[in-house]
Simulated scan of single mutants.
Amino acid sequence: MHNRLGISILLLLWGIVSTGHAVIIDRILAKVNDEIITLSQVQEEGYPLLARLQAEFSGKELEARRQQIEEKMLQQLIDRVLQLQQARKLGLSVSEAEVDAALQDILRRNNLTEEELKSILQEEDIDFLDYRQRIEEQLLLAQLLNREVRSKVHVDEEEVEEYYRTHLDQFGSPTRFRIRHILFLVPPQASNGEVEATRKKAIAVLQRIQAGEDFSQLARQYSQDPSAANGGDLGYLKKGEMLPAFEQALAHMRVGEVRGPIRTPYGFHLIRLEEKQGGEEHPPDAVRREIEKILINQKMQKRYQKWMEELRSEAYIEIIR
């Protein structure tokens, strides 16, 4: 049995869906230069989402969400019409051989014969010639986007190096810290005198640690955190998993070092760095292609948005409510 789910996804990717035999009272929703967009086109474009909404919502909630989806689909259709108009204006075209090659690729990737694909399309009330036409449109749009967007995006060496320097945490294993702490609680409504007394108590314990007493034993004796039973051991933590004040202190600590008192919303802490793992950085050359892809995608998104704004500003677009 062939992968029908894959084919269904394929139909959605090509923007080809069937609305079954539902009756749609059609009307014009928009004019884009000399072309129109109808309600039936919008509903066909958003059919999978609209069908899901009807199964999940009802009443005013359904109507509100339906309007949101139809508005989104309308804007997408306006963009597609503008792009196809621009492709024709530039004289771009797709040959029958290119459509045939794309169709054969679809058949090969889905392990189908052409007759089997036609049978599936027929079950979905989709005409095979319409399917070929949409493949042709997609190939034409790919040409256009390559010409107007991708070909105008470039990334130089300095940009790659700058991205690497400012995103080092993306290109290596995250640093993990195994730490112990001793917490001296400060109640939220504590007076200044109580806060100072607690701080002095923390300093006194710190001095005992510096004099050679065992940190874990003192944690069991003095810490007011549940980790006291384990000698203050908090296990392995990464950035984002601990208090910001801990992160700031650990950034400058060596293994075996003790620091404090560190003030947090909970009170005063003494912390000891037991172990440090990870943090190895991949050299720039090893991640250059990955960085280039990231930067190209970012620039392409910006270029695409700017290009579409230009197309829209030069076009006659009328939304008919």
Rank of each mutant, 00 (worst) to 15 (best):
H2C: 10
L5C: 03
L10V: 03
L10I: 04
L12A: 11
W14L: 15
I16P: 00
S18V: 01
S18D: 12
S18T: 07
I24D: 00
I25G: 00
D26S: 05
R27A: 07
I28N: 10
L29T: 02
V32E: 01
N33C: 05
D34M: 04
Q43Y: 00
E45L: 03
L49I: 10
L49S: 04
L50K: 02
A51L: 08
R52S: 07
L53P: 02
L53Q: 03
S58W: 05
S58K: 15
G59K: 05
K60N: 14
E61I: 12
R66N: 05
Q67E: 15
Q67M: 12
I69G: 05
E70D: 05
E71C: 01
M73T: 05
L77A: 01
Q86H: 10
R88V: 09
V94R: 07
E96R: 08
E98S: 10
L103A: 08
L103P: 06
D105W: 08
I106K: 05
L107S: 09
N111D: 13
L112A: 08
K118C: 04
E124K: 11
I126C: 03
F128H: 10
Y131N: 03
R132D: 08
E137L: 09
L139C: 13
L141V: 13
Q143W: 12
R150H: 15
K152T: 11
V153D: 10
H154I: 12
H154W: 13
E157Q: 14
E157P: 00
E157A: 10
E159H: 10
T166C: 08
T166A: 12
H167L: 11
G172S: 08
R180K: 15
L183K: 04
L185M: 05
P188A: 10
S191D: 04
G193H: 07
V195R: 15
V195P: 00
V205W: 02
R208M: 02
I209K: 02
I209Q: 01
A211F: 01
A211C: 00
F215H: 09
S216V: 08
S216P: 07
Q217V: 13
R220G: 12
S223F: 07
Q224C: 06
N230G: 15
D233F: 12
D233V: 13
G240I: 09
A249R: 08
V258D: 04
R259N: 05
Y266F: 11
F268I: 02
F268R: 01
G278H: 09
G278M: 11
G279C: 09
E280K: 10
P284M: 11
A286K: 13
R289E: 15
I291Y: 06
I291P: 06
E292H: 06
K293L: 14
I294D: 10
L295D: 12
M300Q: 14
M300C: 14
R303D: 01
W307A: 01
M308F: 00
E309T: 03
E310W: 01
A315H: 01
